[in-house]
Simulated assay, not measured.
Amino acid sequence: MPEPADDLPVVTAIHLAPGRRLPVRAVEHAVAEAGAGLVGDRYHGSRHRHVTVQSAEQLAEAAERLGAEVPASGTRRNLTVSRDSIVRTPGARARVGEVLLEVVRVAAPCRILDDEIGPGAAAALHDRAGTVFRVLEGGRVAVGDRYEELPFEASEAAQRAAASRAAASAASAASGHRPLP
């Protein structure tokens, strides 16, 4: 039985980083542009890495493994939701605020986390580092917005993921960039 709409996870934090290795800044809301990502974030305009989403519940699990706090800002993920794990199946979709997202891949923890959070942080976040999404429908997302994973069939999600990869590869080839794997 699905959870009632009032019991959905909510966005607890939004972080944007203007550039690589530059400090993230917490914001109350952000604008997501379809096909481009979050305005003001270092990945805005990238081919497919538009928004990263993580779970506060999984951050708590990582902190328990690490034996130290794992702050939402320390992971450099864009959105943190209040609970549950985040959908990871490529092609699956989720809605957060006005924004429709599609899973690209699992977000792998970076070794930089060991410098930023503490030794062992990347290992503690293994399988808990969230998901990378592309923005299909843009809009505003704000702290307090509901995060809802949309029902899907695995074969349908796989077809969407393949079509998205093909479109991204074609766009990359047209612009002279290396195609996606």
Results as ranks from 00 to 15, higher is better:
V87F: 11
D114K: 08
D84C: 08
A122I: 09
L136C: 04
D145R: 11
G120F: 13
D127G: 10
D115L: 15
G139Y: 05
P90T: 00
E137D: 14
L125F: 08
T131D: 00
V135H: 05
P109V: 05
V132H: 02
G91A: 04
S85N: 12
L125K: 06
L125Y: 08
V104W: 01
L113N: 04
I117A: 02
D145Q: 10
T89G: 05
C110V: 03
R88V: 15
D114R: 08
V143D: 07
D127L: 15
D127M: 14
G97I: 06
V106Y: 09
D114M: 08
A122K: 11
V135A: 04
A129P: 03
T89L: 14
V96S: 00
C110E: 01
L100I: 09
L125A: 07
D84Q: 10
R134L: 08
I86H: 06
R105H: 09
V141R: 06
I86P: 04
G120R: 10
H126Q: 14
D145P: 13
C110F: 06
R93H: 06
D145H: 13
V135N: 03
G91F: 05
D84H: 11
A124Q: 06
G138Y: 10
S85I: 11
D114G: 08
L125N: 04
T89V: 15
T131Q: 01
D115E: 14
R93W: 06
